[in-house]
Amino acid sequence: MTPILETPFLETPILQITGLAKQFSLHEQNETVPSCSEVALTAFPGQLTALTGPTGAGKSSVLKCIYRTYLPSAGRMDFHKANGTVVDLARISEQDMLQLRRTELGFVTQFLHCIPRRPAEEVVAEPLILRGLTLSEAVEQARDLLTRLNVPERLWRLPPATFSGGEKQRVNLARGLIAQPRLLLLDEPTASLDKTTTARVIELIRAFKQAGVAMVAIFHDPELVAALADVEYRLAPPQSLPQPTPALETASS
């Protein structure tokens, strides 16, 4: 894996990944499928780190390992928390990961998973409510962000289930961005957006960088990488680990 476009930073990194690998043991098929291997990367506050590489190189897997949606098979992921301590995301307890997700770590996945039947503005507001804001404060900020992302006002009170792909994606983005996590993972956040909206997303990402948010992102469009990335890591197709390896043991809560 080669870092391209690297610029030197004096700042403390927020995330340092070394030797990360993930492989799936599929019991029924009696098969081991590697999904990423030998991943090493460093992400800094205020910087966007782009993951690139061919389909199947494991870009989404890396993000999912960081977020613990996948249990890593090997490696370390040192995360520098706001309070100055460093934790290994591959090994922290489930409770600690849930706490980080509420406060410092955000993920905009490719698809919106949310409570059915809830109005879009409340879906977007939810991360703020989890942080203790009142519904009306949170919804006010949600509306602001929905405006910036070009979501028409007539949709705000409707549940996103019936929205178009692009509208859903904007709601999903807004929900991921609203709480301004310190580290934001983005998996193709503009894949189904039109030009105007993509431009707004680019503006927002730039504003986030200004505000010191670190991002690790996958873009389908190389132009976006060129426009937004401070560092690019190109992933090579994954190799199997030497031995069948169980998932790493995590701390008990």
Partner: peptide, 21 residues
């Protein structure tokens, strides 16, 4: 046992893998 998204997307046990599949 695990975080719910992990249990559903990366189940470890053969039985859970079947259940999710």
């Amino acid at each position: 046992s695990g975080l719910t998204d992990q249990i559903l997307e990366d189940p470890q046990h053969a039985y859970t893998q079947q259940l999710v599949a």
